[in-house]
Amino acid sequence: MIWLLDLIILALVVVCAVATITLRDLLGAAIVFGVYSFLMCLLWAEMGAVDVAFTEATVGAGVSTILFIAAIFRTTRRSKD
């Protein structure tokens, strides 16, 4: 079962990464990036890197995303590509 979960996470990570860079709505992209970070964090926790996973959860999925959102709020949501 665990490898199935693993495989799903792997697939989702790639999907999220692609979505992040293709979404035209920057806010959406930032949110998807948060999801991506969180999936990454799951992946690392599963690899035994609990500290890294914890950090990624707080930083990547948390603060980083918030900073992105803050910056996007202050600038523009629109993106041409």
């Binding site: 990464a17 992040t20 860079i21 920057l26 992209a29 930032a30 990036f33 991506y36 970070s37 990454m40 992946l43 690392w44 690899m47 890197a49 890294v52 990624e56 990547g60 980083s64 992105f68 910056a71 996007i72 600038t75 993106s79 041409k80 590509d81």
Partner: peptide, 24 residues
Amino acid sequence: KRNLVKKLLGMNIFQTAIILFFVS
């Protein structure tokens, strides 16, 4: 990508990829 935010998101993805590599 031409959008600057996209570049930064890409940078973050790049760096997480490296982190994934190291953790592996």
